[in-house]
Write a protein that binds this DNA or RNA. Structure first.
Lengths: 143, 143
DNA sequence: GGTCCAATTGATAATGAATATTAAAAACTA
DNA sequence: TAGTTTTTAATATTCATTATCAATTGGACC
């Protein structure tokens, strides 16, 4: 029903504001990006590899970084790679990560976020974003 | 008064348990590591470069990763480099990071950690460790 | 202390994620 | 549609980290 979601508008505004252009590649990458919760440049590259106009890896990186600047994505260094989180999917991206099987469970907790604000205020900081990762064993791996 | 702190014992136990050896390099790196709160492999390399038995960069990396396995250190990917946090300095290593000037303030908050435990339990996880980073502007950079 | 063998080191090559470069192609603009 | 600027794709480059491997060392056992 809504072919042009909010994110498309946000991107267009950002492009206009910075004299950048709306290209097929940027549209395609955004289209795929909005489907997922988080993705690496490499994964996106493989995802788009089949498409007709081949999109180069460098373009993927540039575009995902552009999304970060536009506020649509958020980069997160995880292991050796960088995950680009889809900000629209969730208010925040906190993770429970199983050190046994690698399973990732996403969660959000208002109480924790309220406490984070408190800590920041006490130290004179204004929070822009945050990263919370809990590492442990899931029920399946605990045995 | 205590020339052999707890961390030395922990390392020796880990080495014994895995049939690994206590070398001069490992002792020296641990000695320096215990002085700091967090350090990169590169910084450690420069720190030890003056010492008589030159320690190679690869050894630094290997040893810091060993410390992580022994539970003495905790790796944290920050920007392009990896910070190795000294676990003994603090119970946990939560950070307030200024996106303006790069300043890092460390803090700990029992309430947040209690809530983390709750979230984990609710999802069937047993927490081993965690990483919490708050990004924002410090008072000096906010103007 | 000396011997033996697996673990470790150092130097360097290799890897791999991310960025820079640049000629060619595409998008806006008039 | 012509002209101007941005963007793309392919490739080279950078830089942090890891792998390789010959030479060395630690330490258990004698």
């Amino acid at each position: 029903m809504n072919k042009a979601p909010k994110e498309t508008r946000v991107l267009k505004e950002h492009l206009a504001k910075h004299q950048l252009k709306l290209t097929h590649q940027r549209e395609q990458i955004l289209h795929e990006f909005l489907k997922v919760e988080h993705i690496t440049a490499e994964q996106m590259y493989r995802m788009l590899a089949k498409k007709d106009p081949h999109i180069g890896l460098a373009t993927i990186y540039r575009t995902l970084n552009l999304f970060c600047e536009a506020g649509l994505a958020q980069a997160r260094h995880f292991g050796t790679q960088t995950q680009y989180d889809n900000v629209s999917h969730k208010g925040h991206h906190d993770h429970l990560i199983c050190t046994g099987c690698g399973k990732i469970v996403e969660f959000e907790n208002c109480d924790i976020e309220r406490l984070q604000e408190e800590v920041a205020k006490r130290n004179g900081f204004t929070i822009q974003t945050h990263k919370l990762e809990l590492y442990g064993l899931c029920s399946g791996c605990r045995h």
